[in-house]
Simulated scan of single mutants.
Amino acid sequence: MRGEVLRALLLSHLTPAGEVAKADVRGARISGQLDPRHGDITSQCT
């Protein structure tokens, strides 16, 4: 998955107050750059 695409999915859409964008990505390789500026990114590895 291209980092630019993942960033766009998470940060380009407005969400209602109190909600956050989420992507469940498992077993994927992130290629390119994933620029987390202007976002709050957390990870849950299981």
Rank of each mutant, 00 (worst) to 15 (best):
C45F: 10
P16F: 05
P36T: 02
H13C: 02
L10D: 06
R37P: 10
G18D: 06
A17L: 13
I30V: 15
E4K: 00
A28V: 14
C45M: 12
L10P: 05
V20E: 07
L11G: 15
L11C: 11
D40M: 04
C45E: 08
I30K: 02
V25L: 15
L6D: 03
E4Q: 06
V25Q: 09
A28M: 15
H13S: 06
G32F: 02
R7L: 00
K22P: 01
A17V: 13
S12L: 11
P16C: 01
A23V: 02
T42A: 13
E4G: 12
L14Q: 11
G32P: 05
D24I: 01
R37H: 14
V25D: 12
A21I: 00
L9F: 05
T46A: 13
S31N: 06
L10S: 03
R37G: 12
R2T: 09
R29F: 08
S12K: 09
L6G: 04
G27E: 06
R29C: 11
V25F: 14
D24S: 13
L14D: 12
I41R: 03
T42C: 11
H38A: 10
A21P: 13
T46N: 12
T15Q: 07
G18N: 04
Q44M: 09
D24N: 13
Q44C: 10
G32M: 00
D24M: 04
G3V: 00
L6R: 00
L34A: 04
R26V: 14
D40T: 03
H13E: 02
L34C: 05
D40G: 06
E19M: 09
R7W: 02
D35Y: 03
R29W: 07
T42Q: 14
L34V: 00
A8F: 06
I30P: 11
P16D: 07
G32V: 00
A28P: 12
I30H: 05
P36H: 04
A23N: 01
R7K: 06
S43I: 11
T15P: 03
